[in-house]
């Protein structure tokens, strides 16, 4: 049985890592704030979920599994909230958040 669980874990975690990779590529390559945000939040939520699911068979006890689920839930909630906040600021300022949004607009000086 245990090899089956291990295989399941490996598949799920591998898929999660792939999801993270896709999200990061999106963050780096997409043209504007909102689509970058879209790439990050969507894939990350899914990827974290997959990794958490993949880890669940590996931990001992129901309590630990429940704690993993709680981690996933908290990440969902904070990711959703922060995504909303960034989008809000981006819409208000018209500035891409990669140039730190809340404060932005000062030109970058040359590197020291």
């Amino acid at each position: 049985m245990s090899w089956a669980l291990d295989a399941l874990s490996a598949v799920l975690i591998g898929a999660g890592v792939l999801g993270f990779f896709a999200g990061t590529v999106g963050l780096l390559r997409f043209p504007d704030t909102l689509s970058r945000l879209h790439a990050v939040t969507k894939t990350d939520n899914l990827a974290v979920g997959l990794i958490v699911l993949g880890l669940m068979p590996q931990v001992d006890g129901v309590g630990a599994a429940l704690r993993l689920a709680l981690v996933w839930l908290l990440l969902q909630a904070s990711g959703a909230t922060v995504g909303q906040l960034i989008a809000e600021v981006a819409r208000r300022d018209g500035a891409p958040p990669a140039e730190p949004a809340a404060s932005g607009r000062r030109d970058r000086g040359p590197r020291p």
């Binding site: 709680l70 908290l74 909630a77 904070s78 959703a80 909230t81 909303q84 906040l85 809000e88």
Partner: peptide
């Protein structure tokens, strides 16, 4: 009322 206020109500008990 928005996502932040909702979050700030839900999260502290946790």
């Amino acid at each position: 009322e928005g996502p932040l206020t909702l979050f700030a109500r839900v999260l502290p008990p946790v």
